[in-house]
Amino acid sequence: MLPRINDFLFIQVASSDEEEAQSVYKSRVADEDADSLYMEIPIHEPSGKLRKLYLGDELSIFIISPDGVKHYFNSYVTGYRDDVLRLVRIRKAEESSMTRIQRRSYLRVPAELELAVSARGQNRFIGITDDVGGGGISFYCEASRLLETGMELECWLLVPFKNGVVEHAFFKGEVIRAKMLENGRKQAMVKFTTISEPDRQKIIRCCFERQLELRK
Rank of each mutant, 00 (worst) to 15 (best):
L181C: 06
L181M: 13
I61C: 11
D57A: 02
V165L: 13
T194M: 13
D33G: 00
A178P: 01
K191C: 08
V117I: 14
T193E: 12
L59F: 12
F10V: 02
D67T: 09
V190H: 11
A93I: 06
R108Y: 06
D31H: 11
N163E: 13
E174F: 02
D7N: 14
F62I: 03
A34T: 02
L214C: 05
V69C: 07
L53S: 04
H71A: 07
R104T: 09
M180L: 11
Y76F: 14
L53A: 04
E197W: 03
F73P: 02
E95F: 10
F208N: 14
E19H: 02
F73V: 05
V13L: 06
D83R: 08
S97P: 14
A188M: 04
L107Y: 10
K216A: 11
D57T: 00
R103C: 04
S60F: 03
I90C: 11
E167T: 07
V175C: 08
E94A: 13
R185C: 01
I63P: 09
I101A: 02
I43R: 05
S118V: 12
G136F: 08
T149W: 13
I101R: 13
T129Q: 10
D57H: 01
P3Y: 02
I137G: 02
E114I: 01
H71Y: 15
S15D: 15
F139K: 04
V165D: 11
E112F: 09
R28G: 00
I64G: 00
C155H: 06
V69S: 13
R124K: 15
R210P: 00
V29M: 03
L2E: 13
V165Q: 10
A93M: 06
F161V: 08
H44P: 02
N6T: 02
A111S: 13
R210S: 11
L147S: 08
F8A: 09
V84T: 11
R108V: 02
W156E: 15
S16I: 12
S75F: 00
A169S: 15
V132Y: 09
V77L: 12
R100V: 06
E209G: 06
L87K: 09
I11V: 10
E45L: 13
I137N: 02
I101G: 04
D35A: 07
F62V: 00
P42R: 07
V159Y: 05
K202H: 05
L146H: 10
M98D: 04
R81I: 05
D83T: 14
V165K: 13
V13N: 03
Y54S: 09
V88Y: 15
M151R: 06
S47G: 00
E95A: 14
K26I: 08
C155G: 03
D130M: 03
P160V: 01
L2C: 00
P66N: 07
C206L: 06
D131N: 15
E213S: 04
N6A: 04
F10I: 06
G127V: 01
E40I: 04
M180Y: 01
I176C: 13
K179S: 12
I176Q: 15
Q12G: 01
R215N: 05
R81W: 05
G184A: 11
